[in-house]
Structures are given as C-alpha cells and as structure tokens.
Simulated assay, not measured.
Amino acid sequence: MSAPAIARDPGLATERTALAWRRTAISAIASATLFTKVAAEGGIGWRPTGLLPLGAAVLMMLVAAIALARSRSLHRGAHRGTAPLLLLVSAGVAAVGLAAMAMVLVHRA
C-alpha cells in the first residue's frame, strides 16, 4: 500500500502563510544581527549581561531557521500541523523579549 498523497491547496492562503513565515525569518535575522552588534560594541564583556545579547542572537537565528524551513515546506505543499513550531517560535521570541528587557533594566541602574 502506498501512502496517501497530500492534497495541495490551490488557494492563496498557503502562499500568504508561507510568505508570513519568510517575513518572520527575515525579521529574526535582522534582530540577531542587531543583538550581535550590541554584544560586539557594548563592551560589556563576558558578564551575564554581556552574554544576553549573544544568547538572544543565537535564539533568533534558531527562530529564523525554523521559519525558513516552514516556509519552504509550505511552498512544497506540505500541510502538516504547525502547533509545535508555533509554540517553539513563540517561546523563543518571548525569551528574547525578556532578555532585551533585562538588558535595559540592568544598564539603566
């Protein structure tokens, strides 16, 4: 027995979703670049506050990789469940937001 073929959605909803994932990847790469710039120019060393921007940059590159993989799979017509991906991306973005707030609060004091 062969596996059932995945039906391809001929509508534009899949295309819009794939483009949204691609935009998420682009914005995550831009955020990672800015966090790397903050770490390089900040002169904050290897203290925990210096590691926050580097950790945020790595996390945003992971988000970008997930988003790009999802965009490509949608372009190929794979319509699997996205709940684990959405949860992972949401948790990553929330963690980066918390790290950014922590950096601002620590450097204001």
Rank of each mutant, 00 (worst) to 15 (best):
R76I: 06
A109S: 04
L85K: 03
E41V: 02
R70I: 04
I6Q: 14
L59D: 06
A102S: 12
G42A: 08
F35Y: 01
V38T: 13
L86I: 03
A67W: 01
G97R: 03
R70C: 12
S73E: 15
H107S: 08
A95W: 06
L52G: 06
D9N: 07
P84E: 01
A40P: 06
L68S: 14
P10C: 02
G97K: 10
A32D: 02
V93M: 13
A69G: 13
F35S: 00
W46S: 13
G42Y: 05
A7S: 13
L105D: 10
M1Y: 15
T49F: 14
S31T: 06
I6V: 08
G81E: 07
H107I: 00
T33Y: 08
S31E: 01
L59C: 03
L74S: 07
A25C: 10
L105G: 15
A100E: 13
S27N: 11
R70N: 11
A25F: 06
S2K: 11
S90D: 00
L105H: 14
A30F: 04
V38Y: 03
H79D: 07
G81R: 15
L88P: 07
K37Y: 08
I66Q: 01
A78E: 14
L51W: 00
G97A: 13
R70V: 08
V93H: 07
I66G: 05
L19W: 14
T36F: 01
L98A: 11
A69L: 14
R80H: 03
R22K: 15
G43C: 09
L12Y: 03
A91D: 02
A39M: 08
G92W: 04
V104E: 09
R23M: 13
M60H: 14
M60L: 07
R16A: 12
T24Y: 00
M1N: 12
L74D: 01
A94C: 03
V38D: 04
I29Y: 05
G50H: 15
L34M: 10
L62A: 08
R80C: 00
A25I: 05
R23H: 12
